[in-house]
Design a protein around this nucleic acid. Structure first.
Length: 536
DNA sequence: TGGCCAATACTG
DNA sequence: CAGTAT
DNA sequence: GCCA
């Protein structure tokens, strides 16, 4: 058995791949390293040879990969087969895009993939190997792949001919590769250029007068990395960067040089290095980032449609969707709710002016008060979310309703919604009315103040009064603030949610009542923060 | 090496 | 059940 | 990616 570990695989390609059969990758780290070795040993005992690639380029032999658990390798394997087998018939465009997509998925470079293809190597998930061994038929399965490889080798002459024919295709690949070596493709270069320009401006300014703190700029960079890894589905790095970013934002001293970074918690070697790159060169050389930036942006764009998340965005991307226009032309790819999201997408990406949120809230109040006798007295209605945090512009409007006369809130939601729909204020429902086991009710949908205003995303929630403190805290956010607060709660042995809090080890799960937000802060031993201070 | 915030409702 | 959203 |  031959196992190769370590980062610089690109350099070792020539020596490594001669006569080998397969490369294994470990998509979700479900299989621990020790177990991997065992599997590889079994495999090699049967005459196979193993190469482990380190796609992370880091010191450890981690094989990180953007594939979610379980049987999801199916499509990856299909893609690999497609790339390996259908070069002849394939339309250049298809082949290129498939390769690129595969590279993104396996977190390897195009150059690397090209080598794999040239060497007729199979790329297989470790999970597959495990399954085969457990089922005692892995030799058969593997033979299947060997067979496949042989066929390709036999048809090699023909293949290279056809590759000759598709020279322009190859050329494009090469061109890309060349560029990659000098960091990134054309479009990216432009973008980075712009950024570099502005950065150096900042630096010049800094040189002229007193230096400007770099906190915000660094935060922006980390945020970019964070968004990138989030889209990539890299949970680990996502958490890492999220924490680092939060810590940085909570760090009150101005930062001028790299050494000050050491005082910020949750920033370790990796992130420190990137920040150093940024401070020194004005740019972080993460070529994978630049490499896939275009895809990242595209995925973000697609995800900006309500109802389309990371998974669907990726699927749509694989189906060559690149723009909102593409989506409009291919609505058969969407679910009904996503179609609604698409229909109003143009409006939804617009922020709502504070003033309008106030009007929308007023509108809801009017109707609710009209329906319920003495509504003004017994219903408490207010907008939460970024509105309550004092923002001038909000992404959506979040209305929390509570009943203060001690009676059940049951049915309030539906009555209000139905009436508002009748009045033409609510336009569409995004899913059914919600009823939770803990007694709260909710609505998600779309409203419009009047013909002169845009369509807006609106959520209504009705909570029993005894959960009010938790509810308003939760729905006021920010999301990040909630995370911090819950982390604090955990440290003290509590579990905190939108409907209550209880001692973790308390088997009775007794809820601790908090009618006001303040009580929760007190309970958690935290200084009270006004809503406008929760914008973490 | 394992865990990283909680809990739930709804769709397809 | 996976995906999305809150 | 960070931390315990």
């Amino acid at each position: 058995m031959q196992i190769y570990l370590g980062g610089n695989h690109e350099l070792k390609l020539k020596q490594i791949f001669k006569g080998k059969n397969a490369i294994f990758y470990n998509p979700n780290k479900e299989i621990k390293q020790t177990e991997q070795y065992k599997l590889y040993k079994d495999f090699s005992d049967q005459g196979g040879e193993v190469i482990i690639i380190d796609t992370s380029g880091k010191k450890h032999s981690k094989i990180s990969l953007n594939v979610e658990p379980k049987k999801k390798y199916e499509s990856t394997l299909n893609k690999i087969d497609y790339v390996l087998t259908s070069q002849q018939q394939a339309d250049n465009q298809d082949q290129n895009e498939m390769r690129q997509s595969l590279c993104d998925e396996l977190n390897i470079s195009l150059q690397f993939l090209t080598k794999l293809i040239d060497q007729k190597l199979k790329i297989l998930p470790v999970e597959w190997l495990k399954a085969c061994i457990q089922a005692n038929n892995f030799i058969e399965d593997f033979q299947k792949y060997i067979h496949l490889n042989k066929i390709q080798q036999i048809s090699k002459g023909e293949e290279s001919k056809s590759q000759e024919a598709t020279k322009s295709n190859k050329k494009r690949d090469l061109k890309d590769l060349d560029k990659k070596q000098v960091k990134g493709k054309q479009g990216k270069d432009d973008q980075e250029e712009e950024k570099k320009g502005s950065n150096s401006n900042d630096k010049d300014q800094g040189g002229e007068g007193k230096q400007k703190p770099l906190n915000n700029e660094i935060a922006d960079q980390l945020d970019r990395l964070l968004k990138y890894y989030t889209t990539q589905g890299d949970r680990g790095r996502m958490f890492g960067y999220k924490r680092a970013l939060t810590s940085l934002k909570l760090f009150n001293e101005p930062i001028y040089n790299i050494d000050q970074i050491d005082k910020v918690p949750n920033i370790g070697d990796g992130i420190r290095k990137k920040i150093k790159e940024f401070i020194d060169d004005g740019i972080i050389k993460r070529f994978e980032f630049i490499d896939t930036d275009e895809k990242h942006n595209t995925l973000k764009l697609i995800e900006s449609v309500w109802g389309i998340g990371p998974k669907n965005a990726q699927k749509l991307y694989d189906k060559k969707i690149r723009t909102i226009e593409d989506l409009r032309k291919n609505q058969h790819l969407l679910t009904d709710m996503q179609k609604i999201g698409l229909k109003y997408h143009e409006d939804f990406i617009e922020k709502i002016p504070r003033k309008e949120v106030e009007q929308l809230l007023e509108r809801v109040k009017q109707t609710a008060f009209k329906i319920f006798q003495d509504g003004e007295k017994h219903l408490q209605i207010q907008a939460c979310g970024s509105f309550r945090r004092g923002r001038d512009f909000c992404g959506d409007i979040d209305v929390l309703i509570t009943r203060t006369d001690g009676k059940s809130i049951e049915g309030i939601n539906e009555k209000v919604v139905v009436q508002l729909e009748k009045e033409g204020f609510l336009k569409e429902r995004l899913g059914a009315l919600r009823k939770s086991a803990t007694g709260s009710e909710g609505y998600q949908g779309i409203c419009q103040l009047d013909k002169d205003h845009k369509f807006r995303r609106i959520d209504l929630k009705v909570y029993p009064a005894d959960q009010y403190g938790y509810a308003i805290l939760y729905f006021t956010g920010s999301g990040n603030f909630n995370v911090n607060m819950r982390t604090e709660a955990l440290k003290l042995g509590y579990s905190l949610s939108d409907h209550g809090m209880h001692k973790l080890k308390d088997s009775k799960k007794k809820n601790i009542p908090c009618l006001k937000e303040e009580d929760i802060f007190t309970l958690l031993n935290m200084p009270f923060k006004a809503p406008n201070e929760r914008d973490v």
